[in-house]
Amino acid sequence: MKLQQLSLFLENRPGRLGAPLEAIAKEGINILTLSLADTAQFGILRLIVREWDKAKQVLEDAGWVVNLTEVVAVDVLDRPGGLAEALAVLEGAGLNIEYMYAFSLRRGDKAILIFRFEDPDRAIAVLLEKGLHVVDGDELLSVVSC
């Protein structure tokens, strides 16, 4: 149910984002989605890719420090209040969200959000119990390729 997310450290200066993306593009690895968090000095690029293990190797060989984190993809109704309802579930269960970002694709009336939880296993259990749909890796790949 969990997805593997790659994170890498970038200095916050012009041109730094392109290099890692080129490195994985050269290996034919497709990026499913990404998010960039930054401060004045540095940034963290977070990537969800098709072949995370290969991408991790490619990036590490090229000299980046890569961190592997488990995240959870959740289907949320793409209408006003859709996200708020999902968040209410998490809040009600006392689950701590470290950060979240939206998936670049939507399907039908659903948007996919990526959550980084302190405790992803408990989060998945709560989400499923409350009837929310957790998107697993294979499903995500099939969404992207159609």
């Binding site: 994170s7 450290f9 930054d38 401060t39 000095q41 963290i44 977070r46 420090v65 961190n67």
Partner: peptide
């Protein structure tokens, strides 16, 4: 230089190291 030992996917953790 950032090392694998201190790198994290969380901004807060890196700010804390810094």
């Amino acid at each position: 230089e950032v090392t694998p030992e201190v790198f994290s996917d969380k901004i807060r953790a890196l700010e804390d190291v810094r």
